[in-house]
Design a protein around this nucleic acid. Structure first.
Length: 893
RNA sequence: GGGCGAUUAGCUCAGUUGGUAGAGCACUUGCUCGACAAGCAAGGGGUCACUGGUUCAAGUCCAGUAUCGCCCACCA
């Protein structure tokens, strides 16, 4: 046992002062790395507990969103550690292909250079340098939060071993026929100049136009009118389609139209893709610039004519419009059509337009050679896993979202026209193509220029971080992980794909549970974004309130909805920490120098107050733990907070003070008094110790600091045992009795204030009640008096009611403050009337219920009993209030 | 066009099996009584969005409406 250290708490609570030092302290004690304590694998309560961080972008810096996720992950990891589990929190970063490349290119641009100037190799060196210099800033910031990842196991999606896993997976899927190369329309960002997956496109509603354009018919003075939202692509039209069921156009099928402006003849075809009710029922077909048209073109054997380059600039096929940006081209083409009389009309039209999720540029459907993963076979086991509950989501409604996506999954475009990333392990020589992790033997092989989608590496995260595909000890011990905590915004990007990869490559789900955190928004409900500047700086928040306060506030988020961040929330945690700081200081001052760890419970002289707080503590620790188990963090924190503050601090510490004061007697203490003192010390210490343990996962720094200051066993609270609710401490009787005491004290306090008695003035109190009540109050006399500032407490079974007194009724017991001359009789009468009126209201409600035969017959018996008891309680109270009123009237006369 | 979520005190949010509405902040009043003014004590404040249904009983279950938000969808 280590003695307490009162000096440590002599100064006011200052989070900034203690937090940094505590982090180093934990590192010195090696609490971050897993310690083998139980079986190697399995899901038992002693199996290793493993969480992998959702790897932040190497370019990233800490946002409130990260803070939320990290607070939750570390909360659970710390709790599991205290439960005696071997814990591993795996840190790491994502190379974040597009985001990082954009950032470095931006820096180059500022220096007047481009990546093309440098060439691939030199550019990559720039990025690596940049990564060395600025990358990982987020982890420097994160340490401030006090999280406990095992830094020695930090991984990067582009490190050597991880890269090997990625390329290995590419080859394996290729060999299995699940990866293929094809020429299709993909989502293309003309600014990033790369293909994107469907998930990397954000659709936004926008107010556009629907242009109706006349296409003259060949050898005729008639025309067919097509409607389009994208007139600039008409230069690439290679057909016009109508519905086979549309009689209006039936005789035109097989004929030709002449494309305005370029005078190219294109066939009119019939195709089921056309909805006769939309627009004019005739659709221009641009196979190279629209995914629908691409399919139609294939069916109808129409040529694919590309009129735009990869930067969204019109190319040679665009004739006079060559060299124009796509939007400028749109304006010019519309104007030209209008001038030549081809434009019939323009209607306003809202449609949703795809934007690059990285740079917000409007996506261009672009025909190109790309690599794809065939997803349906991978999705099947992931679907089954969720259906059978092998993967559970919290909140559970995400299951539906997940299943809907997987059941309608489309192939995944994984090639990116970038340099920063895993280069596709495919080699070409003439018509030959080899998929290989090594450069093939012989001359003239050229490697595919593209790299893989970043998510094609992160979907392996739960096992590739542990050394897969090698059969490493870590993999054997820590896979599958125990829990995934992440934002619901990446459920498709990442979570679903990890589960698919888990099943395909390891034969099992990478984790049994997924907990989705809220999305953090600003007070007006807007998403946090750099451009809006509405994201609070987490470091500034931690500076101002302390990391503990930030953690405490962030984990108490709604689990269903988004979190509207309000800085005010942070105060609660800071105030709570401060409260516990001062409470600990008080307890520590009164503990004396006795070694409390050797005290046996059987030697104690437990009073009612002691039994009560121990019982309440047992209940509280049960609540805190149960709510952690079900990921109800707000409830868990709340249970801790209200127990510690409203029960331990507000009541127990006050009730213990009289016994602590026995210490002043010194040698004059009797043996019994000595026992009372020791008991009051032990209980206060024991419960405080328990509170600090429960507090630790939420507020690690301050709890550790306080725990170190009070007498304790062991090196660090971080590895101290989690409190178990002791059955022997549960004591319903004591809880009921103290509740009565509290009601009496509250009633007296209320009377004091209502009667405008000076706070410092002690008052006489008379209580009339049952033997049991009076007996109880007699036992609690020494605690009751200071709590309610009582001068003399008279307990009387049949005694006279004081003639002039303020009075209240608590559970049938009458409480009087006999203050002749001090209280205003009129006020007191008015107060009693108001009180009685309230009761009468309640009484009516109860009576009505009890007159209802259906209620008496159908409600559960215990509910009926409760109502009946309440009725008599109310009647009795009312009766006594009336008597009090009467006696006041009498005394006046 | 589908799906999901939200709607409870002035603000941010709890409210686990249906059974007398809660917290923090804000507000009112009073407190330098040796832990704590980042505090203590006592208070005020809610027709639980609306309508209907189930039930003895609905913030809680069901249906619909409204408003806000999110996600998905090949809406020329």
């Amino acid at each position: 046992m280590r003695p307490g250290n009162p000096e440590a708490l002599a100064v006011p609570y200052d989070p900034g002062r203690i937090e940094a030092a505590r982090y180093l302290f934990w590192e010195q004690h090696g609490v971050f790395s897993p310690k083998a304590t139980g079986p190697e694998k399995g899901t038992g309560s002693k199996a290793p507990f493993v969480i992998a961080i959702p790897p932040p972008n190497v370019t990233g810096s800490l946002t409130m969103g990260h803070v939320l996720g990290e607070s939750v992950r570390d909360l659970i990891i710390r709790w599991a550690r205290m439960e005696g589990r071997e814990t591993l929190y795996i840190p790491g970063m994502d190379h974040a292909g597009i985001a990082t490349q954009n950032m470095v290119e931006k820096k180059l641009r500022a220096e007047g250079r481009t990546r093309q100037d440098l060439g691939r190799e030199a550019f990559l060196k720039e990025v690596w340098d940049w990564k060395e210099q600025y990358g990982g800033l987020i982890f420097k910031q994160e340490r401030r939060l006090g999280t406990t990842p095992d830094w020695s196991r930090e991984r990067f999606t582009l490190d050597e071993g991880y890269s090997h896993a990625v390329l290995h997976v590419f080859k394996k899927l290729f060999d299995e026929g699940l990866i293929y190369r094809g020429r299709y329309i993909v989502n293309w960002c003309p600014r990033c100049m790369t293909a994107l997956s469907d998930e990397e496109v954000d659709h936004q509603e926008s107010q556009g136009s629907l242009w109706y354009i006349r296409y003259p018919l060949k050898d005729s003075d008639k025309h067919i009118v097509v409607a389009t939202t994208r007139p600039e692509t008409m230069l690439g039209d290679t057909g016009v389609a109508v519905s086979p069921h549309d009689t209006r156009y039936a005789k035109l099928v097989g004929k030709f139209a002449v494309l305005p402006l370029v005078r190219r003849e294109i066939p009119i075809v019939s195709d089921d893709m056309v909805d006769p009710k939309f627009g004019t029922g005739a659709v221009k077909i641009t196979p190279a610039h629209d995914p629908n048209d691409f399919e139609t073109g294939k069916r109808q054997n129409l040529p694919e004519l590309i009129v735009m380059d990869e930067a969204g600039v019109m190319n040679d096929n665009a004739g006079d419009f060559r060299g124009l940006d796509r939007f400028e081209a749109r304006k010019r083409i519309v104007a030209a059509l209008q001038d030549a009389g081809y434009l019939e009309k323009v209607e306003p039209h809202t449609n949703s337009v795809g934007h690059c999720s990285r740079c917000d540029t409007i996506i261009e459907p672009y025909l190109s050679w790309q690599w794809f993963v065939r997803m349906a076979p991978l999705a099947a086991p992931a679907i089954e896993a969720a259906r059978k509950g092998k993967v559970k989501f919290f909140p559970s409604r995400w299951k539906k979202v997940y299943l809907h996506w997987l059941e309608n999954i489309r192939d995944w475009c994984i090639s990116r026209q970038l340099w920063w990333g895993h280069r596709i392990p495919v080699w070409y020589r003439g018509d030959e193509m080899v998929v290989s992790l090594e450069s093939p033997e012989g001359e003239g092989w050229r490697q595919d220029e593209d790299v893989l989608d970043t998510w094609f590496s992160s979907w392996l995260w739960p096992f590739a971080t542990l050394g897969w595909p090698e059969a490493t000890p870590d993999l054997a011990r820590f896979y599958p992980n125990t829990l995934m905590v992440t934002g619901s915004d990446i459920i498709f990007f990442w979570v679903a794909r990890m589960i698919m990869a888990g099943y395909h490559f390891t034969g099992e789900s990478p984790f049994p549970h997924v907990y989705f955190t809220s999305i953090v928004r600003d007070a007006q409900g807007r998403k946090m974004s750099k451009s809006l500047g509405n994201s609070p700086d987490p470091l500034a928040m931690m500076e101002k309130y302390g990391a503990d306060a930030v953690r405490f506030a962030m984990v108490q988020t709604p689990t269903g909805a988004d979190l509207l961040f309000d800085e005010k929330r942070l105060e609660m945690g800071k105030f709570f920490a401060n409260k516990m700081w001062n409470a600990s200081k008080l307890v520590l001052m009164r503990l004396g120098d006795e070694d409390l760890t050797t005290v046996k419970e059987s030697q104690l002289r437990l009073t009612l107050a002691d039994r009560w707080i121990l019982s309440r503590f047992a209940n509280a620790s049960k609540d805190v733990t149960r709510n952690l188990k079900t990921y109800r963090f707000a409830e868990s924190a709340q249970a801790l907070y209200s127990f510690a503050w409203n029960e331990y601090c507000d009541w127990y510490l006050e009730m213990a003070k009289p016994r602590w004061a026995l210490a002043d007697l010194g040698d004059a203490m009797t043996a019994e008094q000595r026992g009372d003192l020791r008991t009051a010390r032990w209980v206060a210490w024991k419960v405080l110790d328990g509170i600090l343990r429960l507090m630790h996962p939420f507020m690690p720094h301050v709890s550790e600091e306080l725990w170190q200051a009070i007498p304790h066993d062991g090196d660090t609270l971080a590895t101290a045992a989690w409190p178990k609710a002791k059955k022997s401490w549960l004591d319903v009787q004591s809880e009921r009795e103290v509740e009565f005491l509290q009601s009496v004290v509250n009633a007296i306090r209320n009377l004091r204030v209502e009667s405008k008695i000076a706070p410092g003035r002690a008052v006489p109190v008379v209580v009339r009640g049952t033997d049991a009540q009076l007996d109880l109050l007699e036992r609690l006399r020494s605690q009751l008096q200071p709590l309610a500032r009582i001068e003399t407490l008279t307990l009387s079974r049949d005694g006279q009611r004081p003639p002039v007194a303020a009075s209240a009724v608590v559970e049938g017991a009458e409480i009087f403050l006999p203050l002749d001359g001090l209280i205003d009789l009129d006020e007191e009468r008015a107060r009693l009337s108001r009180e009685a009126e309230k009761l009468l209201n309640d009484l009516e409600g109860v009576k009505k219920k009890l007159r209802n035969q259906d209620f008496l017959g159908k409600a559960k018996p215990e509910v009926v009993e409760k109502e009946k008891a309440r009725l008599s309680q109310l009647e009795e109270t009312l009766e006594k209030l009336k008597r009090a009123q009467e006696s006041l009237s009498v005394s006046r006369d």
